[in-house]
Computed example of a mutant assay.
Amino acid sequence: MSSEFSVKNKIIAVTGGGSGIGLCYVILARAQGAKKVIIADISLTKKAQEVIDADSDIVYQKCDVIKWNDLQALIDDCKTNFGDVPDVFVASAGVLEPSHSNFWHDPEPLEANRYFQVDININHPIKLTRLAIRALLGSNKSGVVVLLGSTAGYAKQYMAPLYCATKYAITGFAKSMGEAEKYQGVRVVAVCPGIVSTPQWTAGSAVQRFKLMGNIAISPENVAQTIQEAITQPSKYPGGAVIETLAVGTRVIPEWNFDPPNVEIPVEAIENGIKPILAATDAERGGRGP
């Protein structure tokens, strides 16, 4: 690819674009001249609906990202409605140890035979990447796939081990896809924020945790800007790049031998996060304690 990849007059599809980081990038992409931006999400927030109502070139397609037919329909309907497949795919849909799918409280029954969190955080972005490559090859054009990772994808997190596992998968997958830029003309990169001030951190039981970690959080708009830079600057962010973005700055994580982020998590926040885990496991041993 050249030294720049402009989103101007491009079609961009954003899974999880109905809220949070995804919606922030939808807005930014249109501001940067994208021809059409598709919000692919299972539902819309009030803010997302307002954005769509105000701009006819931002469109909504209902998409359950764990259903591969829905991911393919995102591409097929784009070609039918706009005459081409998306040039850029942003896989921002994801969940952080939700109450219905997490490791420690383990709410999913044995007959589920799977963790929903794995489906949405791993299977969705990986399958979307494969479908995107096929679609772009079929249209004889280059493109970009951005996967929303996390610093949890190369760190440890006792409070959220399943989430960490899913983000480790994204880090490894993105690195492994580096040569797709050379062989298929599709640049696959991962953007890895730390703590972001989205509802996953600012609502419900996470309020206290966010209060303790708010000084190291960044806004979803900050992450959206990093996504934009990842898309438009191929010389700086080549295929396979894993791009960390934190309050202290942005860097590319090298393939080997990198230092941990220069961020210290408050001890109180860790203790608050561990308490419900210990409560759950204490109950499993009959409340006898360690």
Results as ranks from 00 to 15, higher is better:
89 F>R: 12
89 F>N: 11
89 F>I: 11
90 V>I: 15
90 V>K: 15
91 A>P: 01
91 A>I: 02
91 A>D: 15
92 S>V: 08
92 S>P: 09
92 S>M: 12
93 A>C: 11
93 A>P: 01
95 V>L: 07
99 S>R: 10
99 S>Y: 07
99 S>N: 08
100 H>C: 03
100 H>Q: 06
102 N>E: 06
105 H>A: 04
107 P>W: 06
108 E>N: 01
108 E>P: 00
110 L>H: 01
111 E>A: 01
111 E>D: 05
111 E>Y: 02
112 A>H: 03
112 A>W: 02
112 A>C: 00
113 N>F: 01
115 Y>A: 03
115 Y>L: 03
115 Y>C: 00
115 Y>K: 06
116 F>Y: 08
117 Q>I: 00
118 V>I: 07
118 V>E: 05
118 V>Q: 03
119 D>C: 03
120 I>C: 11
120 I>A: 08
120 I>R: 08
120 I>H: 04
122 I>S: 07
122 I>E: 11
122 I>Y: 02
123 N>G: 00
124 H>S: 13
124 H>Q: 13
126 I>H: 11
126 I>E: 10
127 K>E: 03
127 K>V: 00
128 L>N: 10
129 T>E: 06
129 T>S: 07
132 A>Q: 12
133 I>G: 02
134 R>N: 07
135 A>F: 07
135 A>K: 09
137 L>Y: 04
137 L>P: 02
138 G>I: 02
139 S>D: 13
139 S>Y: 14
139 S>G: 08
140 N>E: 14
141 K>N: 06
141 K>Y: 08
143 G>M: 12
145 V>M: 07
147 L>N: 15
149 G>R: 15
150 S>G: 09
152 A>E: 09
153 G>Q: 14
154 Y>R: 15
155 A>T: 01
155 A>W: 04
156 K>F: 03
156 K>P: 00
158 Y>D: 05
160 A>T: 04
160 A>G: 03
161 P>W: 10
162 L>E: 02
162 L>G: 02
162 L>Y: 01
163 Y>F: 11
163 Y>S: 06
165 A>P: 01
165 A>Q: 03
166 T>M: 10
167 K>A: 08
167 K>D: 09
168 Y>L: 07
172 G>F: 07
177 M>P: 02
179 E>P: 05
180 A>T: 11
181 E>I: 06
183 Y>L: 12
186 V>S: 06
187 R>N: 04
190 A>C: 14
191 V>N: 13
193 P>D: 10
193 P>F: 09
194 G>S: 10
194 G>V: 02
194 G>Y: 06
195 I>K: 09
196 V>Q: 10
196 V>K: 13
197 S>R: 10
199 P>Q: 10
199 P>A: 09
200 Q>K: 05
200 Q>L: 14
201 W>L: 08
203 A>R: 11
203 A>D: 13
204 G>M: 12
206 A>H: 09
206 A>Y: 09
207 V>Y: 06
207 V>A: 08
207 V>I: 12
209 R>N: 05
209 R>D: 03
210 F>S: 13
211 K>F: 04
